[in-house]
């Protein structure tokens, strides 16, 4: 009934074959194809050029700068060796930020996905007003991170006032959970949309077959629905994981790292180092390490969840 997994090459071949068929059916002539090839640069070009200017070039420059000595302007930087990396790895605030971020990522990935899936599941059961709820749950995502941080800091301080004299910025534990709640509130709606799309794509005949076979609701959920929405789970865990690791705006505006840099996450730790000329090189080295870390985690996670995806 359900193929648990197929090989990666099979997976790659199938859609291609499908596409060929589709193009034949809808009558895409070879002429359209040729003109598509001819004009492709027009559509890819601008983005590609911006990508090089805005991302690849500075990225390469960043790697170069991480190996330079103290510099005032970039054209003045000179290679010096791995000193900045040595400094970065002996900076205890960097390590604290790393563990804080890691813990934050684990907790937020689990909570956001659980919540988003639950809401998505509830809203695909044909309840009245589902569309309205979907819109409402999605809305927090439209507000920028900085604004959210300031808004929530007021809400939290108001709530904390009910039972303690401490404010959000006085206590690292409050700060941690504050960040989790904020991100949960902001991102669950977005992930929910992805899960809803996944849930709606689960073939009705499969669900019907499960019902006829006498599967309970729980069985259907775990044996039919979840394996079928693995692509959604892959993309959602990928997004939440990298979002949590890269979190900056919300961190800056909600706690700003207070108290005593205890709620400082990696991105904020790095950018704080840039304000002083003497620590710029180190901050740059941290940024390179940070990139490698996020890229590795992202790829590992993609590969591992992809394996669990099923072919329909």
């Amino acid at each position: 009934m359900i193929q648990a997994s197929t090989t990666a090459t099979d997976a790659a071949k199938k859609p291609a074959a499908k596409k060929r068929k589709a193009s034949f059916k809808t009558g895409h002539s070879s002429m359209t194809k040729r003109s598509m090839r001819k004009w492709a640069w027009l559509f890819i070009g601008p983005v590609f050029v911006s990508f090089i200017i805005g991302f690849l070039w500075p990225f390469g420059q960043g790697i170069y700068l991480s190996f330079c000595g103290k510099f005032s302007v970039i054209s003045d930087a000179h290679l010096k060796g791995i000193e900045n990396y040595v400094k970065a790895f002996s900076d205890e605030t960097f390590f604290h930020a790393f563990w804080f971020t890691a813990l934050f990522a684990v907790v937020s990935v689990v909570l956001i996905n659980l919540l988003a899936f639950s809401i998505a599941y509830a809203l695909t059961q044909g309840v009245k007003g589902s569309n309205l709820f979907r819109t409402i749950f999605f809305m927090p995502n439209l507000i920028g991170g900085i604004v959210l941080g300031y808004l929530w800091s007021m809400i939290f301080d108001g709530l904390l006032d009910l039972w303690t004299t401490q404010n959000l910025v006085d206590n690292a534990t409050y700060g941690f959970w504050g960040l989790i709640i904020l991100l949960l509130w902001q991102q669950a709606g977005y992930m929910m949309i992805i899960y809803i799309a996944g849930l709606q794509a689960v073939p009705d005949d499969m669900l019907e077959a499960a019902k006829i076979d006498g599967a309970t609701k729980t069985q259907t959920l775990f044996k039919v629905i979840i394996p079928n929405i693995m692509p959604s789970i892959t993309i959602c865990t990928f997004l939440t994981l990298t979002n949590s690791f890269k979190l900056y705006d919300q961190n800056l505006s909600l706690t700003g790292g207070k108290p005593a840099r205890l709620t400082e996450m990696l991105a904020l730790n790095i950018s704080n180092g840039y304000s002083n000329m003497a620590t710029r090189g180190m901050a740059q080295a941290k940024a390179v390490v940070f990139f490698i870390l996020v890229a590795t985690l992202g790829i590992l996670q993609l590969v591992s969840t992809r394996k669990k995806e099923v072919q329909q």
Partner: peptide, 17 residues
């Protein structure tokens, strides 16, 4: 910036108690 941040945190703790 860093110096003042640490000082702010310490003063906050003092303000509370």
């Amino acid at each position: 910036d860093e110096y003042r941040k640490d000082l702010v945190s310490a003063l906050n703790a003092y303000n509370a108690d």
